[in-house]
Design a protein around this nucleic acid. Sequence first.
DNA 1: CTTATTTTATCGTTATTTGATAAAATATTA
DNA 2: TAATATTTTATCAAATAACGATAAAATAAG
Lengths: 252, 252
Amino acid sequence: MMGITRYTRILALFDEEHPAWTVADISAALDTSASTLYRLIREMVAADFLESTVESRYRLGPFFVEYYRRLRLTDPLVLSGAKFLRPLLGQIPCPCTTILARLYGKTVMCVAEERANTASFATSYELGRPMPLLRGATSMAVLSTLPKRQIMKLVSEASDAPKDADTLYAEFTGIRKIGISETHGQVDPGLVGIAAPVRSTDLGINASLSVIIEQHNLTTEIRPHIYAALSSTARMIEGFMAELSVPGAHIP
Amino acid sequence: MMGITRYTRILALFDEEHPAWTVADISAALDTSASTLYRLIREMVAADFLESTVESRYRLGPFFVEYYRRLRLTDPLVLSGAKFLRPLLGQIPCPCTTILARLYGKTVMCVAEERANTASFATSYELGRPMPLLRGATSMAVLSTLPKRQIMKLVSEASDAPKDADTLYAEFTGIRKIGISETHGQVDPGLVGIAAPVRSTDLGINASLSVIIEQHNLTTEIRPHIYAALSSTARMIEGFMAELSVPGAHIP
DNA sequence: CTTATTTTATCGTTATTTGATAAAATATTA
DNA sequence: TAATATTTTATCAAATAACGATAAAATAAG
């Protein structure tokens, strides 16, 4: 075993279905000796990546809460975009959720969200949850910001491509042209996602800003409102990111 | 250099004041060769701990958003307590913020929070921000859940102890007795913190549930309401945690 | 108190990390 | 575009740390 993966493959075991692990189970899952694992786990507990709990089990530690905050305070996308999510909520005349999402490996992940008090429905795009690349307006808008070569690569590697690569690429061209992606029930039945691409080639950021509403609320009157609110907010976020990338704005 | 600290001491450099680092600056800060750092950083980028950005700088990566979600979905305190923060908001008849906090090394850290739309004031107890152990109701209530030996150790190691150890310990005894800690302006001027201890000796959890309000809103009429709401909610959270710790409730 | 389980310590072998240096890739400037 | 500077990767021998089997210690369970 080598490098950082010694630690990350242990972390990767901890999820909603497996919140707490014994050393014996980790040993079986990773085919690694208990002696080595006790040493690694002791290190990870000292670093607050893990902590020990009942029944000789270990769970994730509070380190990740601290570094989630550090990311919120340093990441140019979150820094520029999160503050617009609540105002955007106010511009949408029906119960909705607003989402800032970005490319994350071979997935798209929400990195900030706001939910109207009136929104009773649940969305799959939760903060921090990796989602499929090729389904839903949020993902499609993110993909549309990428160079063609990278899109084709991601599409070809995707196991769940709903259409062939060229058809998909035509869709991305359309999204780039009108600046909006709209999909119906591709992620959650009964819900509609409407998203605007957000990008900063300078900072290497490929992201999107989305509004999720219930399908029956999407009338021909409110659609233009939503499109306009998304487009203008996306442009403002890009403006703030551009400011962050001016030389000398960093204080290292 | 050894073990996981090779990586964590790099991560520790990234904060609000230093959002992006060059390899040269990291090399100077950690007194480590650039050749080694390029190798470590490459690993950390591959693991999404870091990502590269403009001007040959690196910043924190989105890994921490994903693992913050995993923690939310697996941590017994967050799992049991976060859902009560919004209902608790509703029980407080003035603008307020509700906070779930826990011991984090030699600090206390908020791991979940809710803010009333009407609350215009800013609180220092942000989600994920390590705070001093001996100031503010939130911290005092957490400390009060610990065994005497551990309290004395933490107090003796604290650099900012406002009072001597025995006086402080008497305060913790008082908090344990009435189940509430109330402090005025110890963290933020003009604000009041009111907190109830939250603990599970089974799960090894030492935490607190707090309400932060503006000092001028704390009347003799609403104080009993707040005390009662906090106490009953804290008890419910402890009840949910107890359910999580019954043998066989885990599915490893 | 006894026994079983979990965790830490020890240690030789094996494999990896380190940092100096060189090479390659990328960005900057003329 | 070419030339130069900067950033990043590759190479390699020496130093170091990780591995896992085993034993010892600490803790939990009966």
